[in-house]
Simulated assay, not measured.
Amino acid sequence: MRTLIVEDDLTSRLLLQTILQDYGTTHVAVDGLEAVEAVRLAILSGEPYELICLDIMLPELSGHDALKQIRALEETHGIFSPANAKVIMVSALNDLKNIHVAFHNLCDAYLTKPIAKIHLLEELKNLKLI
Rank of each mutant, 00 (worst) to 15 (best):
L120M: 10
F80M: 09
A85F: 04
H119V: 06
L127W: 08
Y23E: 05
S81P: 12
I52L: 07
T112L: 10
D22Q: 15
D65A: 06
K113V: 07
Q21T: 11
L44G: 04
L111E: 00
I130V: 14
Y49Q: 05
K128V: 00
E37N: 15
A72T: 01
L124N: 01
D55E: 10
L44Q: 14
I52H: 01
R40L: 14
I99K: 13
A35R: 05
G46M: 08
L33C: 06
L121A: 03
D31R: 00
L54E: 03
K128I: 00
L54V: 05
N94H: 12
R2H: 15
P114R: 04
I115M: 10
V30K: 08
A29M: 04
D22N: 14
A66I: 03
I43V: 08
T112I: 13
R2F: 12
V101W: 09
E7C: 03
L41Y: 13
S91W: 01
R40F: 13
A38L: 04
L20M: 08
A66Q: 05
A102Q: 04
Y49C: 07
E47R: 13
A102G: 08
L96I: 15
L93V: 12
A42G: 09
N105E: 12
N98M: 10
I43G: 08
R2Q: 13
T25S: 13
I115V: 14
L73H: 01
D95G: 12
S81A: 11
Y23V: 00
L111R: 00
L120Q: 06
L4Y: 02
D22P: 09
L121R: 01
I52T: 00
E47Y: 08
T112H: 09
L20R: 06
E122K: 12
Q21K: 15
L96T: 15
A116K: 15
A83H: 14
E60D: 06
R13P: 01
I56M: 03
T76F: 08
V90E: 03
V87F: 05
T3V: 10
T25Q: 14
L120T: 02
P114A: 05
I88N: 04
L124Q: 01
L54S: 01
F103M: 13
M89F: 05
L41I: 11
A38P: 05
I130D: 07
K128E: 11
L129G: 01
R40T: 09
L20W: 07
K68N: 09
I5R: 05
D8I: 03
L15D: 04
A38S: 13
D108N: 11
L73I: 02
G78F: 06
S62T: 09
H27A: 14
Q69Y: 04
I43Q: 07
L106P: 00
Q17W: 07
Q17N: 15
Y49P: 02
S81D: 12
K125R: 11
D55G: 07
M1K: 11
R13L: 14
K86H: 10
Y23I: 02
L51P: 03
Q17L: 14
S91F: 02
A38T: 02
L120H: 07
Y23L: 12
N126T: 07
L124V: 06
D55L: 06
A109C: 03
L106E: 12
K113S: 09
C53V: 03
H119K: 13
